[in-house]
Amino acid sequence: MNDKLNLYNERVKRLKDAIELREPDRVPIYGLVDNWALSYYGATLNEVLKDPELEYQVYAKALTDFPFDGALAPGVTMPLNFVHALGGGIFNNNTETIQIATGQSELMRPEEYDDLIADPIKFIRDTIFPRKYKIFQEGTVEEKFGRYAYALSHFFKYVQSLQICSERIKQEYGLPITNGGVNLFMPGDLIMDYLRDFKGIMRDIKKCPDKLAEACMALVDPLLMNTFGVLHSPTDDKYVHLYLHLPQYIRAKEFEKVYWPSFKKYVDIVAARGLKILILFEKNWEHLYEYLQEFPKGSVIGFFEEDDLRKAKKALGKNICIAGGLRTNDLYYASKEKCIDIAKGLIDDLAPGGGFVFAPDKVLATKNDAKAENLKAVTEFIVEYSAR
């Protein structure tokens, strides 16, 4: 057991060195594994939703068959049983992975921004929840409360299961699960995903940007309360996880007005508490690098999907740890030799001086996101090649 804990501590330090822009003993490898674990094991999403032990075995295998130094989560990354118990939601699990059903999130009208700004929690609780979830749409207050309590029991089971699985993976395999229990969208993403949908928020950016920006700022304090309620103090092995997916669709000036102020405020306050922040920068962020250069040094690890990592490190490497690497398309369709050659070039160019973590360019969600033999060949090569 001590060997596993020693391995755990080595991996934690390796990632910490990279995030704090020091050169670690070798390039850390991060396991961006989500529902790809299902196909790798040979299980279905519905099967693991019904069987917590199977879920653990599925994800433990996918996370520990490869020499990862950290991973996002030890199981399914959305509390789907909770969502279904509420009688609503935008997630569909009738496939091999979790899919978002689009066009179902325009629940707030533009004229209601003032209500959201005045009291975000009250507005979402008293106005949005009854519109969205069937359990609040009929019956007495007592009946609604009973149904909500039942749904919450699924949520608490989900959280407890993730905590147990994270600890088991630590003790049994020495692998850090960096999810500290805080998985957030930033205010602009929350408004898009759960209140206005894509078309709605795009209209708002043009027609009422001031209201949108004010609403984003109003949501920062509730998000901070949630963050510090879960992560009371900084630890080296647990991070805040942020998933961003609106900015890449808007121009820099729009980003600066409606998204950046609340985003920066949240990151600055969290980093000032000593917490590390893992951010998934979806799509391409090159047009926004000048803003990201303002992030606090040594607090953020940024996973970039479509950016040229060499450009990203040149522009941002003085304050952000750059993470990414092989395209999922190459991990599935290319030869092992080509994958290794790409990885070698990335390490040669990005590893010197530290501040680089190797990972796929996207979260592995479906079986076509990676061939196991390619992933294994690349990760084992990196362990040997990048060691100092």
Rank of each mutant, 00 (worst) to 15 (best):
L72G: 06
L331G: 03
Y113D: 08
L86P: 00
Y158F: 14
L292A: 07
F381E: 02
F123P: 00
Y173V: 00
A365I: 14
G200Y: 01
V357I: 15
A323T: 03
V220K: 07
A271F: 12
P79T: 04
W260H: 02
M186F: 10
E106F: 06
R203C: 09
T64I: 08
Y249I: 11
Y148T: 03
Y59S: 02
L246K: 01
E282I: 00
I382Y: 01
I277P: 01
P247N: 10
R310C: 11
Y249A: 13
L21E: 05
N93L: 06
G355W: 07
L38E: 04
P28M: 06
T328R: 00
R310L: 13
G325P: 02
E10Q: 15
F263Y: 15
G229N: 12
F295N: 01
R109C: 09
L162K: 07
L15N: 10
F198A: 05
P261M: 11
R196D: 07
K338E: 12
D237E: 15
D349A: 14
V76E: 09
F381W: 06
N94A: 11
R26N: 09
R147F: 05
E20N: 11
I342D: 08
L242P: 00
P296D: 12
K336H: 08
A60G: 06
K367R: 14
R168L: 13
M1Y: 14
S166T: 06
A62M: 03
A334K: 05
A252T: 08
Y333N: 14
K144A: 07
D115G: 12
D3Q: 15
G180K: 01
E20W: 06
K16F: 12
D114F: 04
K144T: 02
D236S: 13
D236V: 05
S335Y: 03
D349W: 05
H287R: 13
C208S: 15
K336L: 02
E10H: 10
F129I: 06
M78K: 13
E138C: 07
A60L: 01
I135Q: 05
